[in-house]
Design a protein around this nucleic acid. Structure first.
Lengths: 331, 331
DNA sequence: GTTATTTAAGAGAGCGATCTCTCAACGCGG
DNA sequence: CCGCGTTGAGAGATCGCTCTCTTAAATAAC
């Protein structure tokens, strides 16, 4: 009760295996009536090509790895970034008939596993979702001479194409909005400084404050809601007179709103709040959050294009997608 | 600059390909010094077995498909169920050295793609995340004679093992809690009735109400926040005197809380609210939500075990995991 | 009508592993 | 010293496909 092989199809259609193969692979050098006979045989037998055999000879697998290099729990739980990126990338890849092999690289041990797997030639290329600067994977994978693209600029200067959003520009736009609406003492809750997004958003904040002659007031969180709440309390302690805060991501902004409420500050009357990411929850906070939207889905699509270019020799410059200020009620 | 083959390893170690293969696959019938020589050769050449060649002869691929059969957007966005399940299943599968191939089946077209892929023998087994009753995939896949396990009881009576949480029992526990805390007029916002979870949770609600001699008041939502808000307004219109509502999932409960606030009802003083799922957000609502927790991660792990049993002939009865009432402030 | 050119289909050699079968070497009892 | 069981290693078939090379037939050219 084995699955039918190309041999069986050929026999049934009364042609050679080579001809059957031609039909399967859509070559045009087959006479119409023979082509039909083969197609009929395929249909009757329910033939499906064996992928192992095929990729053994073609040296292609038609699948790409989506490596999520991030400590386990954070990945999917709060932050919708990963899930959105994964979904979009999947959709895009399926559109070009590539399969997605999802790999989570959360520990050194799994890093090794991933490397071995990639080295094993299981996939034609790798899409790397890696946010932490210290991540050893970008350089490790680029050494394997496998096509790799990264989501988010790799922290170490390694020569792999990447897609990123304009973190610096986005932060600048957010802070500029606070300046333009007349805020005087603008604090920030920065993200972790071992992450590019954390660094760049803080840099954007500093740029604008420097240009507008204001003093910077910085607290650092780790992109979680709790850290945002803690950082906000700390900022209020440091400078009770602050009238605005730029928060490096929405989750922390939600925590900050909570602390502000507890401290009796009204938003935006007393303190204006700007977040970053425009997650779903930003619409439902009290008050709804003014934030910076970046098109995660488009970024994932761009990453797929980049990988395709890597296969086919197209342009592979990094792609930086713009962010957009979404003004709601918090600022 | 090709990758080294087993042949090369054998040549370098001065043995036959067969012996090299024995070493790679950890057979014990190789003399220690020869074994060492082969291992050294492997190390020096950086040999990694070619998976296509291997699975061509072994008929195994060591990867399993994780098929998410759900209309695109819903999957990852609001509902953390999918992301949590995917992550847990990945972790579990990686622990037993199986790769995860993620497939999204959102449209009839992609259904066909998934079926073809599975039929193509790319994977050893399938884990199906399917929530909708009308889903054609469970029966389609079970017909392919591929080991399949399902997350959530398949709506159509098809003979594939599954893992589910005790939706009926959980709903009963939630509603019973409302009864025991003295609530008289207990409404429900049910989930979509084309989903098992929607049906079963409503059934649980009805069971308890019947037994406690109360009248049921039902509105139906679609598991989204907005639908919860709308349903709540509708319930308040139908029966302004209701003093409790059992909501079939947390997202709808969040919407319901919003509508209750707008209607000037205090929670839990005027109206008690019980949700279902214990999502992250349930902790942060105003007031924090009393809800039913089910262990998604454990369910995913159980699903992996079930699949393993399917491979190896262990027991494959459906696994129903219990839910737990988490009492916070809303009820 | 013969030769040159195009087109369609077949023959057969791999791709890189696994695994059965075979055989050589060795130890040991009779 | 011979035969026999055991153990370790090699030979070679095989998995199912692709793709080059070859050949046969059909058409064109002169």
């Amino acid at each position: 009760m084995r699955r039918p092989t190309l041999e069986a199809v050929a026999a049934r259609a009364g042609v050679s295996r080579a001809t059957a193969s031609r039909v399967v692979n859509g070559q045009t050098t087959v006479a119409p009536h023979i082509r039909d006979a083969v197609l009929r045989a395929i249909d009757e037998l329910g033939y499906v090509p064996n992928s192992a055999a095929r990729s053994l000879v073609t040296q292609r697998t038609d699948s790409v790895a989506l490596v999520v290099s991030e400590p386990g729990t954070r990945v999917f739980s709060e932050d919708p970034l990963f899930s959105t990126a994964i979904r979009s990338a999947s959709v895009e890849l399926e559109a070009i008939n590539k399969q997605v092999v999802l790999m989570l690289a959360s520990s050194p041990k799994s890093h090794a596993r991933v490397e071995r797997y990639i080295a094993g030639g299981h996939v034609d290329g790798v899409m790397l979702l890696s946010m932490h600067g210290a991540d050893p994977l970008p350089s490790a994978l680029s050494r394997l001479r496998v096509p790799v693209v990264s989501y988010g600029r790799p922290a170490v200067p390694v020569d792999i194409p990447y897609v990123d959003n304009d973190n610096v520009g986005g932060a600048e736009a957010g802070v500029r909005h606070l300046v333009e609406t007349g805020r005087r003492r603008i604090a920030t809750i920065a993200g972790p400084q071992d992450m590019i997004a954390g660094q760049d958003r803080l840099a954007g904040y500093r740029n604008v404050l420097r240009d507008s002659d204001r003093r910077s007031i910085v607290a650092v969180g780790d992109f979680t809601r709790e850290s945002g709440a803690i950082a906000m309390r700390q900022l209020l302690g440091d400078d009770p007179g602050l009238d605005a805060v730029f928060v490096a991501n929405d989750m922390m902004a939600v925590g900050a709103l909570q602390s502000l409420r507890q401290a009796g500050r009204r938003v935006p009357d007393d303190v204006a709040v700007v977040g970053f990411d425009d997650v779903e929850a930003a619409k439902y906070t009290e008050p709804p959050l003014t934030t910076l939207r970046h098109p995660i889905a488009e970024q994932a699509a761009a990453m797929v294009r980049l990988l395709l270019n890597l296969f086919e020799g197209g342009p592979t410059e990094p792609i930086i997608l713009p962010t957009e200020l979404v003004i709601r009620e918090s600022a």
